[in-house]
């Protein structure tokens, strides 16, 4: 077994710290700023997990995944703001509509494979972005985004003192998505997904309908992404057009590659780290740390995409498997050394 025997107890301890941290009278977890940053990071970790189901487990390189994330956020916001629905009807409706959207987009895109599939999903995602940013039907408020009406959201999610509830909400969403992805990838269908990734022809010869299983993975990932979108609406307070941007999907790809595709925890860790890193790098930009450097160096360095992009190129070219891959390689080496010294092979 490559799993370290203490990894699960440690994870439990970490979750316990996260759960009780905001209630304590000391520690950084009681600061609303930290809570907010971590809440956003948890949601991106969860979103990266859904992308890992597509890319890491099923081998579908989709560039339109952000569409469903944005759909969850925007449909919820529109139903609450414009149609005055209560949130507990709005969110399930948004998730169902997004699932239907995923079925439609998925069945059209899955007529193509591989790189063509990437291009087609990119085009669909961009269509969604256009619809949102052009203020189609005067529902989305265009480039400014759609702030959620604070009066129609449960009071515990409003205000700086209540940030800890948003933090717990995001943590709960992350745990829920993790459990859902774990359940899906361990299920018989999940094994078919991996079989399709590894050798589609062989899986088809066994009598499995490749397109139908890929569509299933696409719809599960899209539906979960819309749940995360609705949570992001509450955490950030508005639905922004950049949620539907191709750059959001590219960021998801970066998170999954950074953490390591197809390992679940790698994607979650990659998403959380990426989200925190891009917030921190932006702060660095505003700070004075780079002011002493000439503009030809400080200019690119002040863009988070520069450092993250370089890291991404490095991982793709020299360290495939990302963080989790590196961890498993180290673990393998350690276990082998253990065996050779004790001589109990």
């Amino acid at each position: 077994m490559l799993r370290w025997k203490y990894s699960r107890p440690l994870l439990g301890l970490l979750l316990l710290i996260m759960a009780v941290g905001p209630m304590l009278s000391f520690g950084i977890l009681r600061e609303p700023g930290i809570q907010q940053t971590l809440a956003v990071a948890f949601l991106y970790g969860a979103l990266a997990l859904t992308y890992d189901l597509l890319f890491g487990f099923t081998g579908l390189l989709s560039f339109g995944h952000a569409l469903f994330f944005a759909a969850g956020a925007y449909i919820t916001a529109i139903l609450i703001d414009s149609y005055r629905w209560p949130w507990y009807f709005a969110i399930p409706t948004a998730v169902i509509v997004s699932a239907v959207l995923a079925v439609l987009v998925g069945s059209a895109s899955l007529r193509t494979k591989g790189i063509t599939f990437a291009m087609v999903t990119l085009a669909f995602g961009e269509a969604g972005h256009v619809v949102i940013s052009r203020n189609f039907g005067s529902l989305t408020n265009g480039e400014n985004g759609l702030p959620i009406n604070a009066e129609r959201v449960p009071g515990i999610f409003i205000g700086v003192v209540n940030t800890k509830y948003l933090f717990w909400l995001a943590l709960a969403v992350l745990i829920f998505v993790y459990a859902a992805i774990w359940w899906v990838t361990q299920s018989p269908a999940g094994r078919v997904f991996s079989a399709l990734r590894d050798n589609e022809v062989r899986a088809s010869v066994l009598g499995l309908n490749a397109t139908r299983f890929k569509l299933l993975a696409f719809v599960i990932a899209g539906t979960l992404a819309s749940v995360i979108g609705a949570a992001m609406l509450l955490v950030s307070g508005n639905a922004a057009p950049r949620y539907a941007d191709a750059n959001t999907t590219i960021a998801l790809l970066l998170m999954v590659i950074l953490g390591g595709a197809g390992t679940r925890w790698g994607a979650a860790v990659g998403g959380i780290l990426y989200s925190i890193a891009s917030t921190r790098l932006q702060d660095l930009n505003q700070g004075k740390a780079l002011a002493s450097l000439p503009k030809i160096i400080s200019g690119p360095l002040s863009e988070p995409a520069f450092i993250l992009g370089l890291l991404f190129i490095f991982i793709v070219m020299f360290a495939p498997g990302g963080l989790s891959g590196a961890y498993y390689r180290l673990r393998m080496r350690y276990l082998q050394r253990d065996k050779s010294t004790s001589g109990s092979l």
Binding site: I296, P300, A305, F306, G309, L310
Partner: peptide
Amino acid sequence: VGVALVAGATLSGW
């Protein structure tokens, strides 16, 4: 994708 990010960020920075 990585090249596009790095080159885009460089040009934006300059």
